[in-house]
């Protein structure tokens, strides 16, 4: 009997964790779909926040279920958090600034910028600082907090035109075919894009499950930037969806007895 009363809450907690996992996944996908026409980095941040919030609620509920008072737990976490913040305040400021910089600061690796009297080409953006290669071959490290406080001038020619669309695809999608399909689709938007800059896809990283890509396009008129970004996002999302679906159907056909040998 004691064993049952001990195991039962654990079982409930496990179920809560499972349900939380499912809700977080569905919510994240839904938010992604709803926001697929908005700015990609902003959409990614909102998805991440929703995911985090659901997990936080789920975990606190699960912990309460096993009998640990959540208020004490939250107090301990809060005190620990305050301690960490006081200890590594500057690092956190920089990391936080990097987090916001991803969304709001209009430059990327490869751009030339000027900030606080320093100028150079951005060769790295890490969680603490942004590294510039100066015109005289010197390296300048600019703390990310400075980028949030100070005016940053992006001196890259045509910088205002460039829109970078981050894309994630599963590794079972044929990357060359996907890239080819994306280019074909985006090429149709040529009248709204700067014809001197055809779209270029770049692979940012390849993990065991998925590949991070970015698609660079150049809009021809600044007022169309958001509309074009939304349209490209929509087209890319549709392609990811249709190729994923085709892949799943292909796999299902391969598994079925009537499928190809």
């Amino acid at each position: 009997m004691d064993v049952v009363s001990f195991l039962l809450p654990l079982g409930y907690a496990a179920i809560i964790v499972l349900v939380t996992w499912a809700i977080a996944r569905v919510a994240s996908t839904l938010v992604g779909r709803i926001l697929r026409q908005s700015r990609p980095l902003l959409a990614a941040q909102i998805r991440r926040s929703v995911w985090l919030l659901i997990w936080l609620i789920g975990l606190v509920t699960a912990i309460e279920e096993v009998g640990v008072p959540s208020d004490i737990l939250l107090l301990i976490v809060a005190l620990f958090g305050v301690g960490v913040i006081l200890t590594i305040r500057e690092a956190l400021e920089n990391a936080g600034a990097k987090y916001f910089a991803d969304v709001f600061i209009p430059f990327k690796v490869g751009d030339s910028i000027r900030v606080q009297g320093h100028s150079g080409k951005v060769i790295e953006i890490n969680s603490m600082s942004t590294i510039l290669l100066g015109d005289d071959n010197t390296l300048v490290s600019v703390p990310n907090t400075v980028l949030m406080r100070e005016a940053v001038v992006n001196t890259t020619p045509q910088a205002w035109k460039e829109v970078i669309i981050p894309i994630t695809i599963r590794n079972d999608i044929d990357l060359p075919a996907f890239e080819s399909a994306v280019l074909k689709s985006v090429n149709k938007l040529k009248p709204s894009l700067d014809s001197r800059f055809p779209p270029v896809m770049t692979m940012r990283s390849k993990g065991p499950q998925s590949t991070e890509l970015s698609l660079s396009i150049m809009v021809s008129r600044p007022e169309q930037r958001d509309a074009i970004t939304a349209e490209v996002n929509k087209r890319v999302a549709e392609l990811v969806e249709s190729m994923s679906k085709a892949k799943k159907q292909g796999n299902a056909a391969d598994r079925s007895p009537a499928g190809p040998a």
Partner: peptide, 10 residues
């Protein structure tokens, strides 16, 4: 900007 170039990229 042509479909042919998409195949070149492929």
């Amino acid at each position: 900007w042509t479909d042919d170039f998409s195949e070149y990229a492929y």
